[in-house]
């Protein structure tokens, strides 16, 4: 048996369980929702074929700057901000937590724990902390003589930088930024992944760098960072996919309706309301598939450009 044949058989066996899952549990739901996107379907009766009219509705909404279009904008803002911050905070915090320092285990645990706090409890906590009138964060800001922010309540479409100089009273950050902050607090899962990746960097590489007299910063830049790029890439791709679908915290913080004035209405929330409150599953499916195409294109672009910067 040739090596190639052997590899083919091994490949198919090893991916077997997943392929079985794909065929049994994933394929049908995908096909069904694609079918619904061409139907009027209220979840309680039978789907009725209406051709492309759901997509025509979407096109009308987008061309008139309607509610779906606004939701797309909110989603893009949230996704970009939270992915960028998660890479920045994730890499730097994990690097810091990998130092030899007393109490390291405790600090790692504390930084990880927020990811475990149940979302309901986390949402209650953050709505207290970020209360615009009396919350701890704004109190801290005013103590430092910085302007208080309208966390969770601001409506500006893009909180900054557009409104930076103009908004009254220096209220720069808005509701979506509150959500981004909450997502960064719950970065624990990512932190664990980065910590494991740093643990995976062969020690010999550091030893070689030390012999060359590299400073910690240079070691980070030339050893740690390149070796982390596969995981950073994972972070970016999964961060994009997951932040686009973020739902529970958005739902809780926005009173389940994208408050205030639709400023936190993300596509995922809009989809939910359309499907399960308005009983308009056909239209919701069309939204989902449009979102699918957009995220797929973004992901494809990320994979294509990854060859230039991801260590292989």
């Amino acid at each position: 048996m040739s090596l190639k044949r052997q590899e083919l058989i091994a490949g198919l066996t090893m991916t077997g369980p997943w392929v079985l899952g794909l065929l049994t549990l994933t394929l049908y739901p995908f096909a069904a929702s694609l079918w619904w996107s061409f139907c009027e379907y209220d979840l309680l009766g039978q789907p009725r074929w209406v051709g492309g009219s759901n997509y025509a509705r979407l096109a009308r909404d987008i061309s008139t700057g309607g509610q779906f279009w606004q939701a797309l904008g909110n989603t893009a803002y949230y996704a970009v901000a939270s992915v960028l911050l998660s890479v920045l905070v994730g890499v730097s915090l994990a690097t810091l937590l990998s130092q030899t320092i007393r109490g390291r285990t405790l600090m790692r645990t504390l930084c990880f724990l927020p990811a475990v706090v149940p979302t309901v409890a986390a949402a209650v906590l953050w709505m207290w902390l970020l209360d615009p009138q009396a919350g701890l964060v704004n109190k801290a800001l005013t103590t430092l003589e910085l302007p208080a922010q309208n966390w969770f309540r601001g409506t500006s479409a893009a909180a900054w930088p557009t409104s930076w100089p103009t908004d009254a009273g220096g209220r720069v950050f808005g509701s979506k930024d509150g959500l981004v902050l909450m997502s960064v607090w719950g970065i624990g899962n990512l932190l664990v992944i980065y910590l494991a990746a740093i643990g995976d960097v062969p020690r010999a590489l550091y030893e070689a760098a030390e012999i060359d007299g590299a400073s910690p910063w240079r070691k980070f830049l030339h050893v740690t960072l390149p070796m982390l790029t596969p995981v950073i890439f994972f972070n970016v791709v999964m961060g994009l996919i997951q932040s686009v679908q973020a739902f529970t915290d958005v739902y809780l913080v926005s009173d389940g309706q994208g408050d205030p004035a639709g400023a936190t209405m993300t596509v995922s929330l809009y989809l939910f309301l359309t499907a399960f409150k308005d009983l308009d599953m056909g239209y919701a499916s069309a939204m989902a598939w449009l979102l699918f195409v957009i995220v797929a294109m973004a992901t494809w672009w990320l994979f294509r450009t990854s060859r230039k910067w991801v260590h292989q």
Partner: peptide, 26 residues
């Protein structure tokens, strides 16, 4: 009062922080 003041005061009535009744709080 201005939209941002109105929206920031409104925050107390939201479902979850509705756990406390701001008439009483402060």
């Amino acid at each position: 009062y201005g939209p941002s003041v109105v929206s920031s005061f409104r925050s107390g009535e939201q479902a979850l922080t509705g756990t406390s009744f701001l008439m009483l709080a402060d």
